Amino acid sequence: MTALSTEPPGTAALLVNSRGEYLLHLRDANKPWICDPGTWSIPGGDREGTESCRQAVERELYEETGLRVPVEPLTVVDTHGPDGGQSRIQVYVGAWEGDAGTLPCPEGIMFRWFDAETTAWLTMCPWTAEVIALHRRSAPVPAAKPPRVGGSRARLNVLGVHLHLQREDGRILLGLRHPDVAFAGRTWHFLAGHCETEGALACLIREA
């Protein structure tokens, strides 16, 4: 047995930008063999062969994002695999300032930046939420600006608008709705909303 065998089998990388946002990865919801399907998490994976945790996280980060970012150890967390077995993950932290939308995504669905407050509204991988909470305690990040809430403009109205955006390659823009909303929670949907005091076109622009 080598000393490497005492290291956690799993690794992950928490990337943070100067605005205090975290780079999260949406896992595929339809692959039962992956851990925490359908949740927002962070890139990473298991050690291979005689790799150290650092070697593994650098390789996994490059394979999943194309990035080579200096990282430092942050914490070790416990997690449960798709078979229910318990495992451990060595989590590293690093800084990156790029556009999440430009990253390749060979595994999962997409990468996006989220501020710390918004993560409370996401369907989060449990151990990733734990890691973000730990990082916030050790390195506080700026609080998110509260959402702008309409005042007296809102009125009862049954007219709704939906925006269908489609690229030339056939891909359609959809948004994943929050689980607590009154309509179509936890589903992918067009940009949409109800008219307030404006016309349908103005409402569509506002909602978008």
Rank of each mutant, 00 (worst) to 15 (best):
L173E: 14
D169R: 04
R19A: 15
A200Y: 02
A95Q: 14
W33L: 11
R206F: 00
V158I: 05
I42R: 01
G94F: 00
L159S: 11
L173Y: 10
R19M: 11
R59S: 10
P9H: 12
T6F: 09
R68E: 15
P179R: 13
D180M: 08
N157R: 12
L4W: 05
G160D: 14
V91K: 02
E168W: 04
P82A: 14
A12R: 02
G38F: 06
C105Q: 08
L201H: 02
C35Y: 01
V181F: 01
A3Y: 03
V181Y: 02
A95G: 03
V57E: 09
I132E: 11
G38T: 04
R167K: 12
I132G: 09
D78S: 13
G81M: 12
N157S: 14
I172C: 11
V158H: 14
A13S: 14
L201Q: 05
G150A: 13
I89G: 00
H25L: 12
Q90M: 09
A184N: 14
W40E: 10
E198R: 10
L4T: 03
L176Y: 13
G49M: 08
T75A: 12
R27G: 05
E97Y: 02
T2N: 02
D115T: 10
V141Y: 01
L176F: 09
Q86F: 00
L61R: 10
T119L: 14
T197Y: 00
G49W: 02
Q90N: 03
P142V: 12
P147A: 11
H178W: 04
D78W: 00
H178C: 03
V131K: 05
C105G: 03
G170S: 07
V149C: 07
G151T: 05
A184C: 04
A116Y: 11
E117T: 13
A184L: 09
G84W: 06
E196K: 04
S18E: 15
L165A: 15
G20C: 04
L24I: 01
E7L: 15
T6W: 08
M110V: 05
P140N: 06
G151W: 00
L201I: 13
T197A: 07
R47N: 01
Q86H: 04
K31C: 02
P146A: 11
H194S: 13
